[in-house]
């Protein structure tokens, strides 16, 4: 439990005054951040700890450097969890890094992504100001939604100091089943028919002709799912390996070998990730700002300047 807000704020002010740039990092667990070199670093790694957690409010407030694993362990004690299942690279990712990246894992299609979990945050902008947006309640529409704007911002708008996150009850049990399917499209018809029946689907991936589906619920519910759907049982650890990019695909897959996660919404290869119609993100480079003179690129640049007029914050990868 360490609160470094004051030092971090001072560091940003000094950098701005001196015209130097800072790369915001926490545990440097992302594959591309590991390559970062010489720029000064605003490290949130030591700014960690749980500030408050009340299970009956379904909210936890944590400092940005707190690890995903630590948060999960604390929530598990109360029979709760984060819905977002963000990638935990090398098992050492922090919550601040996970939100700045904004990648939600296999459960996101069914239980909500990173943005759906974020209720509020405290941050330092490029002026070195300590700002709070959103809050600890489920519904809050006062002012613009800066908390969720920060999701996916990759340290370009500012440093996240604290996050208030929505939590959900941890399911009593989970099972993973698999079946052969010729194409992704047929798996999507199948999963749609299952959720229409109310089956508690919480993961659906397709790779190498196999649909793997996870269900989360009571023992009675899962027994019924197994009896009705059949399928071959698979170890639930598959999903953790997928989130950590530890599946064999990521070690020795062919360049065009594709794994579809999130019911087809996310496509992985050994070297990149793509969500829906969005751009392909290389695992060696990390997310890039929208390039070129497109209207959205212009808007992204103006939004970044609104938070960090002197461009103090640099992407850790570009450093």
């Amino acid at each position: 439990m360490t609160d470094l807000s004051a030092q971090l704020q001072e560091q940003v002010r000094e950098a701005r005054a001196a015209g130097r740039s800072l790369a915001i990092c926490t545990n440097r667990s992302k594959p591309w951040v590991a390559l970062a070199s010489k720029t000064d670093v605003l490290s949130l790694a030591g700014h960690r700890g749980v500030i408050s957690y009340d299970p009956t409010e379904l909210v936890i407030t944590v400092r940005a450097g707190t690890s995903l694993a630590e948060i999960d362990a604390m929530l598990a004690e109360q029979g709760q969890m984060l819905a977002m299942e963000a990638p935990d690279f090398n098992g050492k990712s922090s919550i601040g890094g996970a939100v700045a990246l904004g990648w939600a894992g296999s459960r996101s299609t069914f239980a909500g992504g990173v943005r759906d979990a974020v209720l509020g945050l405290r941050m330092i902008n490029g002026l070195g100001e300590d700002l709070q947006f959103g809050g600890r309640v489920m519904k809050n529409v006062a002012g613009f939604d800066v908390s969720r704007l920060m999701v996916g911002s990759s340290g370009r708008l500012g440093g996240i100091l604290e996050l208030s996150l929505k939590v959900i009850p941890r399911p009593e049990q989970e099972i993973t089943l698999q079946w052969s399917y010729p194409h992704l499209a047929e798996t999507q018809v199948a999963t749609a028919s299952w959720t229409a029946l109310g089956y508690p689907l919480s993961g659906a991936s397709f790779y190498d002709g196999l649909l793997k589906a996870r269900f989360s619920g009571s023992a009675a519910m899962l027994a019924e799912v197994t009896a009705r759907l059949g399928g071959e049982s698979v170890d639930n650890d598959y999903w953790r390996q997928l989130q950590r990019l530890e599946l064999p695909l990521f070690h020795h897959g062919w360049g065009d070998d594709k794994l579809f996660d999130c019911n087809g919404e996310v496509c992985w290869t050994a070297h990149n990730r793509c969500r829906g119609a969005g751009p392909v993100v290389g695992l060696a480079e990390g997310p890039q700002a929208e390039a070129g003179a497109s209207a959205v690129a212009g808007l992204q640049a103006r939004v970044a300047a609104a938070f960090d007029p002197a461009a103090v914050f640099q992407s850790p990868r570009a450093a």
Binding site: G102, R115, V141, F144, D145, V146, R148, L149, M150, V151, G152, S153, S154, R156, L157, R275, G276, A277, G278, P279, V281, P287, Q288, A289, E290, A295, V296, L299, Q300, V303, A304
Partner: peptide, 22 residues
Amino acid sequence: GELLEIAIDDVGPDLLAACIGS
């Protein structure tokens, strides 16, 4: 007068979330 397409699939800050409730 520009027409922008802003989607949940975009890479970068979540402009879609910022637009909702603006």
